[in-house]
Design a protein around this nucleic acid. Structure first.
Lengths: 103, 103
DNA sequence: TTTATATATCAATCTATCTTGATACATAAA
DNA sequence: TTTATGTATCAAGATAGATTGATATATAAA
């Protein structure tokens, strides 16, 4: 019940849906790339990523200074169906820009 | 997008999950039966039912003085999968009591 | 070390949602 | 009609969530 509420709660925000869909398309992105793509301040992005991660949609991998977010795999069928549903909402997706200073 | 947000928004509340699951089990119930089963005041139940209806989960049928709520059919696959997911959350369900004064 | 960069967290403010009690409306019985 | 019952809606207060700016932490370059 708590897990379910956390899951749907994470989906109950336009910004998070866009971020989640973006990551689902891009495979793996670091925070600053999301920051650049959506033109939002870093603390805002960071908070939404945390919520999506704790809702079971994302995983993080830290490499050097960066935190790379991607869809958690394997993903249960319910969350898979949610990602599919979101994919077909026709949301405008920003393109991937040069995010951080160095690669 | 708005529809999707309305759908997950409707699910983002413990009371509504219980009401939705209750109706899914009982097939068709009137407002006062839900009121009795959950021991909540009428305006609260009524509001949640409205939200669940507008989110595409429920339909109402008015017969005489009563409003009977049931799962909307046919229901799309996404909402069906949500109902299944909710069904397996192991929520405690109140039993159906004598709701209204007369039948 | 010192400095810069990437990310996370916190406190304050703002906004949306939930609950309650009162009231409105509709139907049917008296 | 008048009265009672079932349901919906509204306003006010309470609670939860979102955004921002500031700060903390961690890594790596200088």
């Amino acid at each position: 019940m708590e897990v379910f509420l956390k899951t749907v709660g994470a989906l109950n925000d336009e910004t998070r849906l866009k971020i989640l869909n973006f990551i689902n398309h891009q495979d793996e992105v670091c925070v600053c790339e999301i920051e650049q793509a959506f033109d939002m301040i870093q603390s805002r992005i960071s908070r939404h990523l945390k919520i999506l991660k704790e809702a079971g949609f994302l995983k993080v991998e830290r490499r050097s200074r960066w935190a790379y977010y991607s869809i958690r795999k394997p993903l249960d069928l319910f969350r898979q169906s949610i990602l599919e549903e979101i994919k077909h909402l026709g949301m405008e997706m920003p393109s991937l820009k040069q995010g951080c200073d160095i690669e």
